[in-house]
Design a protein around this nucleic acid. Structure first.
Lengths: 357, 357
DNA sequence: TGTCAACACGAAAACGTTTTCGCTGAGAAT
DNA sequence: ATTCTCAGCGAAAACGTTTTCGTGTTGACA
């Protein structure tokens, strides 16, 4: 097991200088064809590869993107990563992931770990705890240190940076309008607590769709679930909660749920209570994951196009990184900063399956 | 937006040498208390953080682990990553992921990208295409360059390194024995093509369980699915295939599927054909993912404990990395190499749900 | 024969650290 | 007064690159 070979070793072995080796390998015409040949052959023989770390140090950039997401065992976030990785690799970047596990402190620790020179920029989605605390100083701090950030999905106005979001409001609107158009009169909403912005926006979409149809939103038809429940264990609790909800609201004929877990669980409970889907009750979920596709009946959902979000986020970040090379950010007037950052909105898509008519 | 502050800048600002700053910050008692105070205060004020890249270059290690997996939008692999990340972070390491996308060349490209100094060691699961080609030179090459590898799940004898696997054989055995013990007489197997080792092992477990019960495996009861089908689109094709299979084998009363997608799809088709689960047909899948848990009826599965696999793999790798610091690998006799590497076997667990009696 | 350009190559700086060693000055010991 | 000791600090090397700026050796040309 030999250590990786370096320019210095090649130089010594061939009795030339390091500079010569470096130039020969990069095909500089400063070096004679003879020596170039010799050096390149030798390098190939010993399978020479330049040391990325040394290059990073020299160039002051790592060609690596840091991703921080709340959770990786999650279909949506995985698709986003896939998207990021796709364009990052295509553009010559690597991807390094940190998991905040929905925790404020782990988010900070991870960011500090990566911000210490390991990466050129961040792509991240804010943890629930951070959203709850509304403490975003670490984001602004790293931005001020000159490291660009792209926020996706769970974004927040307090941070000035590029953002990629899905139109949660219109997605919900579309979904509920669909339910209305297929004859639903009493549409229930199953949602999370309000502090996650996306949940709030979806709720607004639900309400607006109803109002457009001259229906007053009935508070009894809105079920807010404690977040702790979607985690792992307490599936039973979730089911009981929903069952109680159904029993208190016998006239429900449509359900819009802000994620697919709530949606399929609702279907499960509904069937257990003797309802037929979609005949008696129609269901639409948000987030087109593996559950939606393979549930029985398969679930009509609002797709967020996670992969596309990831691709967009990566392009946005890399564009900025490579733009900064030429123009320094200092030129930008403080007042122009706001317009300087883009927010890309990915259109949602209603994927119709068998849980709706 | 100021660039990150360095030792040099602090030194200049405080009119001391770089060495003094470095020592003061690390609390060396070589430096007087006065200067130490002053320097530390200044550093804190300007939020100094040592540059990881420079440290990596100096120490010749990056404190980063490279992961390469075939696919990230996949419950099992995500849980493995979560496990790796968990112990990696706990032990002061970062995690950088590459996706091979089941492609041989992308696997190689990714490995070369990372092997160029970016990481200290690999944790990876082999892509299908690589398994098909049976070309493992790139693994052995990087190992020979002194970079340790830990293989998980999809492993192969030809590569000499630490491995973490699940006992696929016994997992399958347990599953089929369970079906037998609850009265199944004609148990079908739905599996993939043979070249993925885990599929082969699971098939062997199925066969052995039958033989133990003095039943001859019936080739007609084994359905081999083209891999391309589990990807994204062709869910219909998969369903048709399974439906045809059922119609050709009307006496089937039990199904063992080598992954949860096949299992839930089988359930779906069975129900469509009028069978009741688990009364008429019992079903067990492999891989305890989100589908199994939320299918109706919920699916009995063999859990692979992905997270535990990840944790073990990370521990194995980091142990080796930190061991190599002291003893050089050169001391190891060539003959001792074989016993030098560990293979950790994670026990499977049969999680009983509603698709079995 | 002397001058100059072109060619082929090397020296050194730089990126940001840590660490070894050497240096300086002041007080203690003789 | 002279030597010794030690505290407190700085210089420099090293990690592996790339790149700028020399520098020496040719050959051609006047």
């Amino acid at each position: 097991m030999k250590r990786k070979i370096t320019l210095k070793q090649i130089a010594k072995e061939l009795d030339v200088s390091i500079s010569t080796v470096s130039k020969a390998l990069s095909g500089s015409k400063e070096i004679s064809e003879d020596t170039t040949q010799k050096i390149q052959a030798f390098a190939k023989l010993y399978n020479y590869r330049p040391n990325n770390i040394a290059l990073s140090l020299k160039n002051r950039k790592t060609k690596t993107i840091g991703i921080i997401i709340p959770e990786i065992v999650h279909h949506f976030f995985s698709t986003v990563i896939r998207g990021i990785e796709l364009v990052a690799n295509k553009r010559g970047y690597n991807v390094i992931v940190g998991l905040s596990n929905e925790s404020f402190t782990k988010e900070i620790i991870n960011m500090e770990m990566l911000a210490g020179g390991s990466i050129d920029g961040f792509i991240l989605s804010i943890s629930k705890e951070t959203l709850l605390k509304q403490d975003y100083h670490h984001f602004n701090a790293t931005i001020n240190q000159g490291m660009p950030i792209v926020l996706f999905d769970r974004v927040v106005n307090e941070v000035d940076c590029d953002k990629v979001i899905v139109d949660d409001f219109r997605g919900a609107l579309k979904a509920v309008k669909k339910l209305l158009s297929t004859g639903c009169k009493n549409i229930a909403l199953i949602t999370t607590m309000d502090y996650v912005s996306v949940g709030r926006l979806r709720t607004q979409g639900y309400i607006e769709a109803l109002e457009d149809a001259k229906i007053n939103a009935d508070a009894n038809l809105i079920l807010k679930i404690e977040d702790s429940l979607d985690a792992e264990g307490d599936l039973d609790v979730l089911e009981n909660e929903i069952e109680k909800f159904f029993k208190n609201n016998k006239k429900i004929d449509g359900i819009f749920a802000v994620n697919e877990l709530y949606a399929v669980t609702a279907m499960k409970v509904a069937r257990k209570l003797g309802f037929k889907i979609p005949e008696d009750i129609q269901v639409i979920g948000f987030t087109d994951g593996v559950l939606s596709k393979h549930a029985t009946p398969s679930l009509t959902t609002v797709s967020q196009h996670g992969q596309k979000m990831g691709e967009q986020a990566a392009d946005l970040l890399i564009d900025r990184l490579e733009l900064e090379e030429e123009e320094s950010l200092d030129y930008i007037e403080e007042t122009a900063r706001n317009e300087y950052f883009k927010t890309v909105v990915i259109e949602t898509e209603l994927i119709e399956r068998d849980s709706t008519k």
